[in-house]
Design a protein around this nucleic acid. Structure first.
Lengths: 181, 181
DNA sequence: CTGTACATGTAAGTAGTTACATGATTGG
DNA sequence: CCAATCATGTAACTACTTACATGTACAG
């Protein structure tokens, strides 16, 4: 059976242990969010669908003082579906599709100052992201059960640093171009 | 007026000069495709829409020996809309959303060999992309009118190299882990 | 005679987002 | 008393993809 990327992601998160929709959203935020960031509400669509496919089960958990929960757990069939997906080789996803890069690409249709300003703001965003990465790194470093999360984090860091180097270079170039014009 | 990313992209490409839908598809392929790669057919939806918004005009060009064309040209209003978008500061787009990275992240639910194989294939894809980047670089280098395309290309190259370094590191780690297990 | 380039468009589908809808408890 | 946290769900919308639909001309 073929699921969507969102469904596989939720299924994968469920494989770490049973969780309610709310908890799963928070868990996603602290783990996979650097790669996959759907609307928080989206999990409430996905989870019942996984149940209807037989890949998960639900259980109502009454609570006192706070609203009742619906706790989801992956089934044996769910685990098989996940493993099967993980083994599958798929063609590379869609390319970049970044608003920022498009605005650089079309930079000739506005002033160099506007372009430079976009780069500066992008650099600031990168710095903020770097902070989150470092926090996450501290939290998961050394724990063997986070080996794969660590690998994806490393990937993000490597690319982040490359993006920062590029931004610095680009700014220098744009500023010198602005002076000569 | 607010357009979609696809609409702004087509509008931007039109700003380089008038073109038919077919030509625009080819032009996109050789220019912006590393950042934005819609289904080729998609431009046939977008172009008439731009006309209906008053951002472009159409002109039927009869041809002999081959099918007639519809040639689109950006209007003054279209140029304003483009410039206005380029100046606008927007919040950063959605994060990564890469199938590949997700499969690494969930690597603990399959064997290290499967994960390593994904990394190997990813590395091959990167090498192929690097080839395209270098071709493009050759074609546009030195021409001042391609300054901004060159900037985005540099961005892609910088990140590509970072991804390759990561892939090599990750493979080493996965292989040593496979031996000890 | 077969595949590629030229050339455009519609209709249906899909994945995910946003808005709407509701309500208790706790900490400042 | 106000904001945040806990807690779930539906309905409408949007942007883009895929499949369907059609046809000529030229090169190998």
């Amino acid at each position: 059976m073929d699921l969507t990327l969102g469904e596989y992601t939720v299924l994968g998160l469920l494989a770490f242990g049973e969780r309610s929709g709310y908890d799963l959203g928070n868990f996603a935020e602290r783990s996979v969010s650097l790669i996959w960031k759907p609307a928080a509400r989206h999990v409430y669509n996905v989870l019942p669908r996984l149940v209807s496919y037989g890949l998960a089960t639900v259980r109502d958990v009454p609570q006192e003082g706070r609203p009742d929960k619906r706790v989801y757990r992956i089934t044996a069939q769910g685990k098989r579906a996940l493993a099967e997906w993980l083994e599958r080789d798929e063609p590379g996803g869609p390319s970049e599709r970044s608003v920022f890069l498009l605005k650089i690409f079309f930079g000739g249709f506005t002033s160099p100052e506007v372009v430079a300003e976009h780069v500066r703001r992008y650099r600031e965003e990168l710095a903020a992201t770097a902070g989150i990465y470092e926090e996450t790194e501290q939290r998961i470093a050394g724990k063997p059960e986070n080996r794969f999360q660590y690998l994806t984090l490393k990937f993000g860091l490597e690319r982040l640093e490359a993006s920062m180097r590029w931004a610095d270079e680009a700014l220098k170039e744009l500023e010198s171009a602005a002076r000569t014009s």
